[in-house]
Amino acid sequence: MKKRGKGVGIIFYGTGYGNGFPDISKAEAELQDDGKVAIYVGATEVGQGAKTVMTQIAAEALGLKVEDIIFINEDTMVTPDSGTAAASRQSYNTGNAIKKAAEALKALIVDKAVDKMKLNTNIGLKVENGNVFVKTFPSRKISFKEIAEDYKENPLKVEEEFIAQTTEMDEETGQGAPYWPYTFSACGVEIEVDTETGIVEVIDGVLAQDVGKALNPKLVEGQMEGGFAMGMGYGIFENLNLKKGKMKNNSFTNYIIPTALDMPDIKNVIVEDPESTAPYGAKGIGEPVMIPVAPAILNAIHDAIGVRITETPVTPDKILKALK
């Protein structure tokens, strides 16, 4: 017999290193000969989309197109330390550092433009598409490339850093402000339990994720899809079969992770509520997208078969044992 059930999980997630630890990201912005801008950060692209969203942040702040940003993050010799690609901290922390560096470089470029165009002030100027111009008289303009010509030997370059604000918690009471920002999410699933085989199938799902502001909605959705799959794998698929310190399941032959065939067609909902300390309001979401999924599945299993499974992974034999 197949029994259906529904379950929900809701969570909060504190991003960043936390607990007062210096959570520092550095970023450099440098005007290139051709008027493009290079961004140097030590932030790793692990597949989460860091290169893309950080390029977007720099482009937005400088009034440039994505194609005009050269993003360099692969080499310790040329990049500053931007901390680890973890704790859902790169969009927020390094994103903030990049925004600061891009804005500082823009201000520097504007100053140079004022000198070069022999203007009386930097008030009333606009920066757009690699040009600095007088808002009320747009033909009075100069391009980034023309400005760069004066600095071929020693390019205009700025470095900025961003440090996230947290406090160390009290050792005895745990009181303090350990993380910031917090991100929130909720997940609902519908599942089907085969009472003869013990197999649980997730047949429907909805994931609503607070993002502050989505820097790139498609990339957020990608994280949500991946997070759902990983959360599902955690709850009902993945089992190392650990015995006396030995992992018996140590390859994808027997360590089963979800595939596209296991993924239901989930509904992803991006919830925006910009955070004032974040770059354009964006909070980190790399981790929270997976967190509410497994608990929602466990609650749905109880809804379906009336038995509460308190130990993961929920393997078929555990379900069959619980049904007896």
Binding site: K6, I10, A186, G188, V206, A208, D210, V271, D273
Partner: peptide, 30 residues
Amino acid sequence: LEESVPLDRCIQEVEKVMNFTQGKKGGERE
């Protein structure tokens, strides 16, 4: 939590799809 706490909206989005408050809709299927 002095800003950006849209958990209520996250929950409402899930509720819209799942209708938990309308009572359980699970059931048996052969």
